[in-house]
Amino acid sequence: MIALLLRDLRLAVRAGGGFGLGLAFFLILAVLVPLGVGPESALLARIAPGILWVGALLACLLSLDRILALDYEDGSLDLLATAPIPLEGVVTMKAAAHWITTGLPLTLLAPVLGVLLSLPAPAYGWLVLSLALGTPALSVIGTFGAALTVGLRRGGLLLSLLVLPLYVPTLIFGAEVVRRGADGLSVATPLALLAGITLGAAALLPFASAAAIRINLR
């Protein structure tokens, strides 16, 4: 399974595109928002936690359809489905590879963009922590969406429609952590709930994703 993870990572790095694309999107979004709402730093500081979380979520969404599409097209997904390792493990590794190439760089980039949006100083730590805790859930849920739409020719838009409602709880708790952090309030409750969502999704959703892939390959 580690070999599979490394293979996916190598492919992602070699293919280039998808890797940097999400980051560039995130950056552009953080530049466009102040242009849209005006340069007033008090206002930007207030909306920064939400903008950064929404931006990370959308950037994550961009690369979801690539999680399984390439493997489906060249037939390696069929091989993986019949391989001795369980398909549940395969989808977990796919989600992990997606997180390492998308969620992790977004998490590291977020504080820089926080500066652009005049995020209040106490919130930086919480921003990184909440993204580090929350983006794995985005990858796991996204893998489920990708598994549902893997056989479809124009699955990209449908994938967003299916996945975005599933992102609601993660977004709410994630942005709430940063907002409370910025106001200097206690963040324990939303942070625990966010971690709970990530752990629950990582533990249970691979079964649903694997089931969806089996149905699609039938």
Partner: peptide
């Protein structure tokens, strides 16, 4: 049959997340 299977899986997963969202928005 594929459509029926996949939508059923989506309905199950969606129900869990709809419930989670409900608690999340009350928290929010």
């Amino acid at each position: 049959d594929t459509a029926a299977d996949l939508t059923a899986v989506l309905c199950l997963v969606g129900s869990v997340f709809a419930l989670l969202s409900r608690y999340a928005v009350f928290f929010w």
